Simulated scan of single mutants.
Amino acid sequence: MSTVTQRVISEALSWVGTPYQHQASRKGAGTDCLGLLRGVWRHVYGAEPESVPAYTADWSEPQGREELLWAAERHLICKPTSDAAAGDVLLFRMRRGAVAKHLGLQVRAGQNAAFVHAYSGYGVTVSPLSEPWARRVVARFSFPG
């Protein structure tokens, strides 16, 4: 496991218990799923690669634009969805036909696969990558380096 992967997993797990707060990205204070990824990125690389514009809870659904997917493609390394590894960024489509608008960081692969994500009503938590979650994964990425 690379040093980057170890840092990603360690940092993601250190956010567990942070309350959910839309558009926030402060460990211990509040975050949403994108804020969690942004916080992990800052820990691993320093400055974020681009500014994040304000976004609503419906996350570009009315326009049908894949903003989150496109941003991930700009800054992360795309990999096959079947090529699961700890440290991966998972992008989820919560409803068939909807844009991808939730993400998490895989912390365990294999039989006991799990991921860390910020989830409304739960905050940052570790969830099993169970079939209901796994079938919603539409893209998988690794961190550069």
Results as ranks from 00 to 15, higher is better:
residue 58 D to M: 12
residue 127 S to C: 02
residue 140 R to P: 07
residue 51 S to H: 12
residue 103 L to G: 07
residue 84 A to R: 13
residue 20 Y to C: 09
residue 50 E to W: 06
residue 85 A to Q: 14
residue 23 Q to A: 13
residue 3 T to R: 14
residue 26 R to Y: 00
residue 59 W to V: 11
residue 81 T to M: 06
residue 132 P to Y: 08
residue 63 Q to I: 08
residue 23 Q to E: 15
residue 55 Y to P: 01
residue 16 V to K: 11
residue 106 Q to R: 13
residue 45 Y to D: 03
residue 127 S to E: 11
residue 64 G to H: 03
residue 88 D to L: 03
residue 6 Q to H: 15
residue 65 R to K: 13
residue 84 A to H: 13
residue 28 G to A: 05
residue 9 I to Y: 07
residue 27 K to Y: 00
residue 111 Q to I: 02
residue 120 S to P: 04
residue 89 V to K: 09
residue 88 D to H: 05
residue 34 L to S: 01
residue 9 I to P: 05
residue 13 L to H: 05
residue 42 R to A: 14
residue 41 W to K: 07
residue 55 Y to E: 01
residue 44 V to G: 05
residue 42 R to K: 12
residue 39 G to A: 10
residue 53 P to V: 04
residue 140 R to K: 13
residue 59 W to C: 06
residue 104 G to W: 01
residue 126 V to P: 02
residue 91 L to S: 04
residue 37 L to S: 06
residue 138 V to P: 07
residue 130 S to M: 01
residue 50 E to D: 10
residue 145 G to D: 14
residue 13 L to W: 03
residue 75 H to Y: 13
residue 31 T to R: 00
residue 57 A to G: 12
residue 94 M to Y: 03
residue 20 Y to M: 08
residue 78 C to K: 13
residue 18 T to C: 00
residue 38 R to K: 12
residue 38 R to M: 10
residue 38 R to C: 09
residue 129 L to Y: 05
residue 82 S to D: 11
residue 24 A to V: 00
residue 41 W to A: 05
residue 105 L to F: 06
residue 43 H to M: 07
residue 101 K to I: 01
residue 128 P to F: 01
residue 123 G to F: 10
residue 50 E to M: 09
residue 91 L to A: 07
residue 118 A to T: 07
residue 71 A to W: 13
residue 96 R to K: 14
residue 12 A to P: 08
residue 69 L to P: 00
residue 41 W to S: 04
residue 35 G to V: 05
residue 145 G to W: 08
residue 52 V to L: 15
residue 22 H to G: 04
residue 22 H to Y: 05
residue 11 E to N: 11
residue 106 Q to A: 10
residue 63 Q to K: 15
residue 86 A to W: 07
residue 89 V to T: 10
residue 22 H to W: 12
residue 31 T to G: 00
residue 75 H to E: 05
residue 133 W to Q: 05
residue 7 R to V: 04
residue 132 P to E: 09
residue 55 Y to R: 02
residue 7 R to G: 05
residue 130 S to K: 04
residue 87 G to D: 01
residue 98 A to C: 03
residue 115 F to H: 12
residue 119 Y to A: 02
residue 7 R to D: 10
residue 50 E to Q: 13
residue 113 A to N: 06
residue 49 P to K: 11
residue 104 G to C: 02
residue 104 G to T: 02
residue 72 A to Y: 10
residue 14 S to H: 06
residue 5 T to M: 14
residue 144 P to E: 09
residue 76 L to R: 00
residue 46 G to M: 11
residue 78 C to Q: 12
residue 52 V to T: 15
residue 5 T to R: 15
residue 81 T to F: 01
residue 76 L to K: 00
residue 49 P to E: 08
residue 71 A to F: 07
residue 98 A to L: 02
residue 21 Q to N: 01
residue 125 T to N: 09
residue 69 L to M: 12
residue 49 P to D: 09
residue 122 Y to L: 12
residue 137 V to M: 12
residue 61 E to I: 06
residue 95 R to P: 00
